[in-house]
């Protein structure tokens, strides 16, 4: 096992015999940093928020939102109210009520949709587990973080109209992920269409 004993232990020097030159050396470092901040971008790291803003990193996650396709959020909602995210959410901040009727999804298949979909973002801890477990790519993480409000209960309880955001928004904030999801969904849709075509071509009941 390679070990390393402390090589420059300074106990050999009595600090009482030192003249304070090390303190001056330290001050030189601070001075270099101070004056350096006028010339070097490296040393000037402060960003004057809110006048200046950093562009968020691509993977940045804040709070979840629901993706919809097309223009109408109620029609294009991808969520099918399967309640997996509700079950897996560690702090239990998602609340879903299934609908009574069905609506067609992006493949044209009839599916349930959430009659109620609430996320209490004051409880949400932005862990992204809902996104990971969602088999329908319906819930994704937003990058919006300026959500302060004076109403802790109403203002931080997001219902589905506030949570729904378009696929364009998703493409804009997470371009790489969105492209992969779009490709996957397009593939699924093509498969479903091919299957439907095949079913239409062959008679419904070959025995008859």
């Amino acid at each position: 096992m390679g070990t390393l004993n402390i090589e420059h232990r300074t106990s050999n020097i009595e600090w009482t015999e030192m003249l304070g030159e090390q303190i001056i050396k330290g001050m030189a470092v601070t001075a270099r940093n101070f004056f350096g901040s006028y010339v070097s971008k490296e040393r000037l790291t402060t960003v004057q928020y809110p006048e200046e803003r950093l562009t968020p990193k691509e993977n940045t996650r804040q709070f979840p939102f629901l993706v919809y396709d097309g223009d109408d959020w109620e029609k294009g909602m991808r969520c099918v109210a399967c309640q997996i995210c509700e079950k897996e959410c560690p702090p239990q901040c998602i609340y879903i009520v299934k609908s009574k009727d069905k609506k067609p999804d992006y493949k044209g298949q009839l599916q349930l949709y959430p009659a109620t979909f609430d996320i209490d973002i004051s409880v949400c801890m932005s862990c992204q587990i809902c996104v990971e477990v969602c088999p329908f790519d319906a819930i994704k993480m937003d990058t919006e973080f300026e959500l302060s409000t004076d109403d802790r209960f109403g203002g931080l309880l997001f219902s589905k109209d506030k949570l729904s955001k378009s696929n364009e928004h998703y493409r804009r904030i997470h371009p790489t992920d969105a492209a992969a999801v779009d490709e996957h969904l397009a593939g699924e849709k093509a498969k479903a269409e091919a299957k439907a075509k095949a079913a239409a071509a062959t008679p419904a009941n070959p025995a008859a």
Binding site: M1, G2, T3, L4, N5, I6, R9, T10, S11
Partner: peptide, 22 residues
């Protein structure tokens, strides 16, 4: 990986500081 484990000798605060730096 090839790395070493820094060890102090006195067990005082300075050694703790130094072990962390190393």
């Amino acid at each position: 990986f090839d790395f070493k484990v820094p060890l102090g000798e006195h067990g005082d605060i300075y050694d703790r500081y130094m072990v962390r730096v190393l």
